[in-house]
């Protein structure tokens, strides 16, 4: 647990060197920008060309959104430089966990509720569509 501890109220008051303020460099911003545009366009083109079957496209564009999230976290928000402040990362990860629980939990629960409230005719349709029956 001691590792969790940050050096709170540290006495370090040396003047910030060029990079210490955590704003990165023009290079990192440009890389991030180019990568983001590439990912956006790729997802866009994927959807415009129906060259893949739908589930594949769906998974691919979601993956690309997540990749772009990481790209921006690193190149725009410079989280790689946050090693000095683990709490920024910890709350970010916690946020990710909470969001996953709330979003996927809600979707799971609501899907389950809807499924159990289908009328007999709807159930049949649902099963034909989703369960190959």
């Amino acid at each position: 647990m001691a590792q969790l501890d940050d050096k709170h109220q540290s006495q370090d008051s040396q003047p910030d060197s060029a990079d210490a303020a955590g704003h990165g460099s023009i290079r990192s911003y440009t890389i991030g920008f180019v990568l983001s545009i590439a990912l956006t366009l790729e997802a866009f083109i994927l959807v415009l060309n129906h060259s893949f079957s739908h589930p594949v496209v769906l998974v691919l564009i979601l993956i690309m959104a997540v990749v772009q999230l990481l790209v921006q976290l690193f190149f725009f928000l410079h989280l790689d430089r946050a090693a000095k402040a683990p709490w920024n990362i910890i709350v970010l990860l916690c946020m990710g966990v909470v969001i996953s629980i709330v979003v996927f939990g809600s979707l799971w629960i609501m899907q389950n509720l809807n499924y159990h409230m289908l009328s007999p005719a709807e159930t049949e349709k649902y099963m034909q569509k989703n369960e190959d029956l």
């Binding site: 008051s13 910030d16 210490a20 303020a21 955590g22 402040a85």
Partner: peptide, 16 residues
């Protein structure tokens, strides 16, 4: 050190 210099007012470091 026994007195704490609260660096929050002077630092502009994104992570501190």
């Amino acid at each position: 050190p026994t007195t704490v210099v609260d660096d929050s007012e002077t630092t502009v470091d994104q992570f501190r």
